[in-house]
Nucleic acid binder design. Sequence first.
DNA 1: ATGGTGGGTAGCCCA
Length: 264
Amino acid sequence: MVSVASWNINSVRLRMPLVERLLDEETPDVLCLQEIKCEEHLFPYEAFARAGYQHMIVHGQKGYHGVATVSRLPLREVSRHDWQDNGEARHVGVEVGGAGRGMIVENVYIPAGGDIPDRTLNTKFGQKLDFVERMTRWADALDRPTLIVGDFNIAPLESDVWSHKQLLKVVSHTPVEVEALTRFMDAHGWDDIGRRHIAAPQRYFSWWSYRSADWKKNDRGRRLDHMWASPELAAQTVSHRVLEAARAWERPSDHVPLITEFAL
DNA sequence: ATGGTGGGTAGCCCA
């Protein structure tokens, strides 16, 4: 069994106690973090090593974005793409286990894309679409079973949001974003592990805005975080969970962790 | 229709 978790942590240094709680309670073999918000030399390497996660691949930058993959099993970095071509740290790819025959785990943080869903009025929205388009070209050439996880910042299905109708013009759920993400899915034939285990139209959210007096009561969530795999790898999944309780932990991230177990 | 909160870091950007 190998388990992989993904979590947009929104500052790894501030929320290291929450990360330690997750590692202690769930003991995933691999944890992919997004929005670590620190440079590589400021990453809390010692705390992860103390928790039993001695293998760490960090792609950080000052103040914004940044991803890290930590593991109890040996890791080897295989790629570090800049799909936006602007120097932001939003991806790292690793191989878990033996070189050439281990599991490929791609950890990605797709840009949020700003507030206005129009690339002529909002550069960031165009950058988001271009980022997904470059991912699509990359996925088209993949030649190994791969797992890709992270904050995609797109909720593609109607049941991935609290109100399909009210979010159609809200960045993260617009048709143009969903179409771009669908092209990415089709380029490799990715299997959406989340929806394999919690089939639509069941409620499935991974993010609730901080800008709500009571996130739980209103439950205006969205599924922005995903775990997608090559079909042969997805067929080996035995469980998938959304740790919704983590949204109520002390000083929480606005995202919650996802965990998938593989029978490998 | 609007603004609401949170994090990093230095006078705003990003989510």
